[in-house]
Design a protein around this nucleic acid. Structure first.
Length: 282
DNA sequence: AGGTTGACCTGGACGC
DNA sequence: TGCGTCCAGGTCAACC
């Protein structure tokens, strides 16, 4: 599942391949993967890639054309989306939905998505999705202030892209484990040092994963079809039933509607708010 | 308003 | 072998 580190890896791979190049060919084979008018995407032909960037799990490709306003193509990979560079003679893999060719680049860019949760979309500043600050590129202080005092369970809040953009199920579970926070803890009740530890853990897991080219749990591959190396560093995600380093057994519960992996010993529930004890000093 | 559930979609795992 | 069922989860909508 492409989350922030996987999308970052893809964007880093795409930058030298397409930046400054003119789009010579666009073919949408599956119009339903395009939000809005699929023909508008095909009409990008002739434009030149000015920039390619990432915000959260979204890829943004800005294309310019003399005398026309800037066009911004947003690509979201959903759960099984892939952006692959292949020479045109390589047979199209099943579930390949959109093709792009660029002047001076012998390979073509293919958008493939088995489950079609991903999408392409032309966006304007007004129709850009409402995303919170990027979980990797934002200064730690911004992330701290973003999460501070928020209502709702930690798991749900960290998955909320309008709050903080980029984390998905894998990295939320890993960051909560590394900071010793139970997924059901209300964010607003975290002691500030604990919240600080959570922010540090988010940076730690994202940085480590980006360095290793992301996590290939099921379908994720980079633009060359290569797999990410972070899977071996996972400590709780997908490890329910096996033993944590502390000796306890890692559990899997459904929290905020998602499979959630945690160690009950390393991530204890917060005690109920202290209230006067009936049995205190006589 | 926080929380849960279902829909979307397909492949893979599992049980009979 | 082959069929039915369930599960995975990013995001959105509908509901309690």
């Amino acid at each position: 599942m492409p989350e922030l580190p996987e999308v970052e890896t893809i964007v880093r791979g795409l930058k030298p391949e397409i930046t400054g190049r003119r789009l010579t060919f666009v073919a949408v084979h599956t119009p339903s993967v395009v939000r809005g008018d699929a023909r508008a995407v095909e009409k990008l032909r002739g434009r030149t890639v000015k920039t390619i960037s990432r915000h959260g799990k979204s890829v943004f490709i800005e294309l310019v054309s003399a005398g026309s306003p800037l066009a911004t193509l947003r690509v979201h990979l959903g759960m099984t989306g892939q952006l692959l560079f292949e020479t045109a003679d390589v047979a199209l893999a099943r579930h390949t939905h959109v093709l792009f060719r660029f002047e001076g680049n012998p390979r073509e860019l293919r958008f493939r998505d088995i489950r079609r949760f991903g999408c392409l979309e032309l966006v304007t500043p007004k129709t850009r999705p409402n995303l919170g600050p990027d979980a990797w590129q934002s200064p730690p202080e911004v992330i701290f202030e973003t999460l501070r005092g928020r209502a709702g369970m930690a798991k749900a809040a960290l998955l909320d892209q309008t709050l903080l953009a980029g984390l998905g199920n894998i990295y939320v579970d890993e960051a909560l484990f590394r900071s010793g926070i139970h997924p059901r803890t209300p964010l607003g009740r975290l002691p500030l040092p604990k919240l600080r530890a959570l922010c540090d853990a988010i940076r730690l897991v994202l940085g480590e994963s980006i360095e290793l080219g992301g996590t290939s749990f099921r379908n994720y591959v980079d633009i060359e079809g290569g797999r990410g190396g972070f899977k071996g560093r996972l400590r709780v995600y997908g490890k329910h039933g096996s033993r944590c380093r502390c000796g306890d057994i890692i559990r899997r519960d459904v929290v905020a509607g998602r499979g959630t992996h945690f160690c009950p010993s390393c991530q204890p529930r917060l005690r109920s708010p202290s209230r006067p004890s009936a049995r205190s000093t006589p």
